[in-house]
Design a binder for these strands. Structure first.
Lengths: 206, 206
DNA sequence: CGGTAAGCGGATACGGGATATCCGCTTACT
DNA sequence: AGTAAGCGGATATCCCGTATCCGCTTACCG
């Protein structure tokens, strides 16, 4: 039933010291390689990037899916933490806006993360859980903002994912667009989402 | 210099009647298959859908790229025509909005078209030209709207492509979203793009 | 130390899937 | 009826990522 390669130190054998080190190396390499080249990167790529042999990687992770899951559950959890933190601020709309900016800024530098965001949730349940966590906090944020009357009528938590997807699309746009262009559109959308007087008007950002 | 398979009836041999018919069949099948399954569809798929053998298709189009180009140049030209038509209306902002709705409605039912839209322009020059045509008309539309004072300050023709990309992203969103959801976000963006009093506020659309 | 099992490396076998060809048969046209 | 154009589709080829396998190396234990 258990995947035989859980990361907790509890199980059968404690794992040799170098092996444990390598496991971390692989995770780190996975982060970097997936961030740069996206999910289509090969475990061979990851292995090489980690300075290890392919066999070593396959020893620790049965396949690419497994490594990707391990990597992105970490990253999604970090993002969930950011959303969580927003709940402690006073102005919920501002917190929501800040969260979107920060989370999307991460995505901007992480192709793999963008790809994971796009894929609904038909992958392993680790990712599904992490995604739900984010969603949950967003729901809270939206609810709070609505209660504060700063959210345009009709906007719900179901709008958050599409908004993220839209901004992601701008990031993925081909051609020589300036990086950071996405902020411009996020602003436009936030403007469209806000109740009452708008934040600073759209301007020639980078 | 010429591709030997130009569509004009001018060239060397007039093409047997059934052959000409099949050519049309293939084009039509290409439209349908690419619309449904996207560019990753196989020429074999297209052939089968057309009720023809693979060999026949390869006789008319050297490879998938060639057929796809033929198909989507047509479609892009049609869209260019829609943009063109908007220039005859009085209210340029309204025309722009209408154009976006109409063009994107097409994309909504056409996966291949969406994929072509996303790819910048590194493909054959036929597509590049068609794209430029659309862009040109959009520029005119935007200029006219700006002159009429209906466009929020700072918005330019360079914003059109990203907007289309964003809406496309909503269409491509996984999960059980209602079709037509994209209209909701197009409205939000148009609201964010418009100068002065907004169009009808966002509401629980389909 | 020396023995032993855990871990490592990476060339390569495998699988799958798209592309494009080839040639015997059919059909249009004169 | 003759002839060349056109057709069909089984299949060879290519491309590439995945994952294995096994001889060698290294950590760890007594």
């Amino acid at each position: 039933m258990s995947k035989r390669e859980d990361r907790a130190p509890a199980a059968a054998r404690p794992l040799r010291r170098d092996a444990e080190l390598n496991r971390r190396r692989i995770l780190r390499a996975g982060r970097e390689v997936f961030a740069e080249r996206g999910l289509q990167a090969t475990l061979n790529d990851v292995a090489h990037h980690a300075g290890l042999g392919v066999g070593t990687v396959y020893r620790k992770f049965p396949d690419k899916q497994a490594l990707a899951e391990a990597v992105f559950v970490e990253e999604l959890d970090e993002i969930a933490g950011m959303a969580r933190a927003g709940l402690d601020e006073g102005d919920a709309f501002a917190a929501l806006a800040r969260f979107l900016e920060d989370a999307l800024a991460r995505a901007a530098h992480n192709r793999g993360l963008r790809e994971v965001m796009r894929r609904g949730g038909m992958d392993g349940d680790g990712l599904a859980r992490a995604r739900q966590e984010i969603e949950r906090h967003c729901t809270d944020l939206v609810a709070k903002a609505r209660a504060q009357g700063t959210l345009r009528a009709g906007i719900t938590e179901a709008d958050i994912a599409p908004i993220a997807a839209m901004i992601d699309a701008v990031m993925t746009l081909p051609g020589d667009r300036p990086p950071g262009l996405w902020r411009r559109y996020l602003e436009i959308i936030l403007y469209g989402i806000h109740a009452g007087t708008p934040p600073p008007p759209a301007e020639g950002d980078a």
